[in-house]
Structures are given as structure tokens and as C-alpha cells.
Amino acid sequence: MLLNIETATKNCSVSLSKNGVLLSFKELNTGNYTHAEMLHPFIKQLLDEANIGFNDLSAIAVGKGPGSFTGLRIGVSAAKGLCFALNIPLIAIDSLSILAHTKQIDKGFIIPLLDARRMEVYTSVYSPNFVQIAPIEAVILNENSFANYLDQAPVFFLGDGVEKFKPICKHPNAIFEIDAFPSATQMANLSYLKYKKNDIEDVAYFEPFYLKDFFILKAKTI
């Protein structure tokens, strides 16, 4: 039994899976970050409803980012704490791949866009069978962004970063889906494949994939 945790965006999401099959999930996206309040209760509810205990878990998978600094810290800290206490493996999955798996297409490209503030997004590019064909990077959007893909085939843009790109992208091959978020419901098979290959992290040293440095702005004195 695997516990999957995804907190890279405002969607607080957890699921239970077995042998790559989703068994149950809890998630909440109110437009605010509820992770600190809801993550641990969601985990307990899932286990209680499945009539299992923490000792029945074989591993824990977590969305490693990129995404919200606060959300990632909460999710990764919870996953690491449980793995350390239970002495079970930690599995990490990039959150853009998780988001890409929310969309099924026959042709074209899937481009997840996660908000990185201002006109910047975290992004990558995936084929219809979810092969990553471009590196994960932070991109400053303009009207010509992703033109090389848009000129070839339909492109499905997913995620909270779509709100920034849709007003400036007028290409006829662009298809926008704003209400898509990385979800633990999409992690069942991804985490199982990594578990079978023993593709696990060092619990003591694992950190979220922030991609960008985290800055704390000090209040100005008047």
C-alpha cells in the first residue's frame, strides 16, 4: 500500500494506492493554501476509511515540485517525517509530470504551466504518451512562448499558470485548461513504477525541487 501526497499548488491532495491502482483519495482546493490544516487530517481519514494503520504502508510518494515554496515544504516535511518514523522508502515525483498525467490526448503536446509569480511559470513539455521532451525550467511568458510546438500541432496548456498565458497567446493551436492541478489521484501508477524499480530518495537529505531560490522579503521601514 502506498500513500501519495501532492501539495505543490493550492490543491491539497492525498491518495492511497496498491499495485498502481488508485484506491481512495482526499483533496481540497479552495483557492487558498489549506495544507497546514488539512494534510494530516486527510491522511488519517484515508487510513481510517481503509481500515488500515500507518504500519500497513510500504512507501510514501510525494510531489517534489516545482511549485509553491510553502506547499512543497509542508508536503515534503510530512512525507519525510512519516518515512523516518515508519522506516519505509520515500518516492519523489516531479509535480509537472503529475499535472501532465491529468490530460489524455491522441496527438500534439501537453505543456503544464505552474505559477512562479509575475509573468513567470514552471513548465516542461510532454508527448501524448507522457514522455518528457523538454527540460523543466522557469520561463518568462510572452506572446511567442512555445511557438515551436504550437506551429506543429495542438498544444494543451494545463495549470494555474494558464491564466497568465491565455490573454497573450492567440495561436489557433493553443488549448487552455485552467482548472487543472497536480493531484495525488494521478500518482498511483507513477509511484508504483518507481517503487518496483526501487527508485527511492535518501530521506535524511531529500529536499523539494524548488527550481528557483526562495527569498524572504523584509518589510520596509519608514
Rank of each mutant, 00 (worst) to 15 (best):
I88S: 00
I93D: 05
L28E: 14
L82G: 01
S124V: 04
P41G: 09
I98Y: 10
I111C: 02
A174M: 12
G161S: 11
E120D: 13
Q186D: 00
E137T: 11
I91P: 02
V121D: 06
Y33V: 05
N142T: 09
K44Y: 10
F54E: 09
F109M: 01
I136E: 14
E207F: 01
E120S: 05
F69S: 03
F130C: 02
P41S: 03
H101W: 11
N51S: 15
K107C: 10
K220M: 12
L28F: 15
N173M: 12
P135I: 05
S124K: 10
P154E: 04
C12P: 07
L96N: 03
N173D: 09
G67A: 07
N189A: 11
G31Y: 14
D115Q: 12
P41D: 01
S191P: 06
L22I: 04
L86K: 15
D106M: 13
P208R: 10
K44H: 11
L150A: 05
H35W: 06
Q152H: 11
L47T: 03
S68D: 07
I136D: 06
G63F: 02
V125F: 14
S95V: 04
T9E: 00
C83N: 10
K218V: 07
D160A: 08
L113F: 09
I200R: 04
T221Y: 13
V121I: 10
V121Y: 10
S77E: 11
S58M: 15
S127Y: 09
A79G: 03
F214K: 04
R117W: 08
S15R: 10
L72V: 01
G63A: 06
G67Q: 01
N144A: 12
V162C: 13
S127G: 03
F69V: 00
I43Y: 07
P167M: 13
D106G: 14
L39Y: 06
T30G: 08
